[in-house]
Write a protein that binds this DNA or RNA. Structure first.
Lengths: 244, 244
DNA sequence: CGATACGTTGACGGAAATCAACCCCGGTGG
DNA sequence: CCACCGGGGTTGATTTCCGTCAACGTATCG
């Protein structure tokens, strides 16, 4: 019935060998589909969710509001991601999850999901693995924010998103849709919006990217990757990553 | 036989309700004990480990060397931690693990561990949960490095280590052993050693901490926590955290 | 057509990096 | 026993990257 799970299955298959039966089992999970607007708070810091959320269409981010009202975005999420899978094992949310554009999401109650994972331990491993890749992405972002300069940071994020979005088949001609404002980029990169703006201009001037309203085009992958100090190993794909 | 697993059991119990049988099962795992010197590379970026490592005594860190030779430390690990548990599901290491002082470690082959977790799905959940807490710590560090100033960052790290070390019963009088050089602190915090030095002096001058060779004493928890913008929720302990 | 959100630009200031000494202390070897 | 050495800590001077502030441009929308 549900085609809904397709991006999830495809994504898990990127890093894990799923059998046909396993894929079909996942497709049978009792998803509940919902459309939500942009800037919609799916789960909030402090909540005790009883369900997980998968992104079917759209774009979401996880973030936390810090002491002096600053916001740190920890990750961006694309179709096939289950950004709050951790709520299955950690009762209280320590951060928030929100859409950044109108999106279609599929919710999955914890109880049936838990039962399902007990019945399919290999799939449980795949889900665990997925959360481990999540953590690897956090580490890489930490390294970016701690040690790379502004242009490297911006470039790195653009590289990562390109690879991830390409992996779910949503790039054409080295171009992908990026529905983020410069303020959101700044909140993710630990920069000010002003500096993000100047840095994007710099990357454009260098001929590395073209970036217009809501889209990014990679013009020179080799040099962008160089500037970014980007090595996709941390994404843990099974097969070598096809590069432009 | 093995008392070795005690810190691990104690640590899991911090955030997960383990039955006596489960604790005993963990204690029976086939650990292999080894003593290693300080600055010893346990696992390196690019390795394909066939075992996991638990810290029995000592102190370790995970890190990665970035493009221009800079090092980013992602986490510190204390007795009871299994820093490379992720290698159970991610074949290739995307970072390195090393001791920062002479340590006793216990290794655990992947195969028996995998079989064990299949046989004890609840314990598998506890381990999964542990890796999720790991990820939560990464997020918090990311927020620190991205958005907090130097004194807040240093204070935050000292708070986190205090709580974690206290949880395994290794503090006395608000004092704990911290076998880190200022260079290692700098690599963890995204600062220069010079600035770490000045910031520590500042915290000392403010009367928040006393820090001598290899030890830290918390003198004013309330104000330190305030400076750090520290909220231990992200550590996901089961019971309220006893504060000085 | 004004309101609003997002992007862009310039001037200025500040937090932290960098560079370069210097100190202190424990270990080691002559 | 003392000289030497090296790692770690400390200090001051200078530089730089990026933040902040403030204004202005531009597009979308009710």
């Amino acid at each position: 019935m549900t085609q809904v799970a397709l991006p999830l299955i495809r994504k898990l298959a990127l890093s894990f060998r799923l059998s046909t039966e396993e894929s079909e089992a996942i497709a049978q999970l009792p998803f509940h589909i919902r459309d939500v607007p942009g800037d919609f708070a799916i789960v909030s810091d402090g909540d005790r969710p009883t369900q997980c959320v998968m992104i079917v269409e759209g774009f979401a981010c996880r973030y936390k509001i810090l002491g002096e009202g600053k916001r740190q975005i920890f990750s961006f999420h694309i179709p096939g991601d289950i950004p709050d899978l951790q709520s299955l094992h950690l009762e209280v949310m320590d951060h928030s999850l929100a859409t950044v554009m109108p999106s279609r999401i599929a919710t999955l109650q914890h109880d049936p999901l838990r039962a399902f994972l007990r019945a399919h331990p290999r799939i449980a491993d795949a889900f665990w693995r997925d959360t481990l890749i999540d953590a690897a992405i956090f580490r890489e972002w930490m390294a970016s924010v701690a040690r790379r300069d502004a242009s490297s940071r911006v470039a790195h994020l653009l590289c990562e998103l390109y690879i991830r979005i390409q992996a779910i088949g949503r790039t054409t001609d080295h171009t992908y849709e990026l529905p983020l404002t410069q303020e959101e980029l700044a909140d993710a990169l630990g920069l000010s919006t002003v500096h993000v703006n100047r840095t994007l201009q710099e990357l454009r001037a260098e001929g590395l990217i073209r970036s217009g309203k809501r889209t990014v085009a990679i013009l020179d992958w080799a040099r962008l990757r160089e500037v970014a100090d980007f090595d996709p190993a941390y994404l843990h794909f099974r097969s070598p990553i096809p590069t432009p």
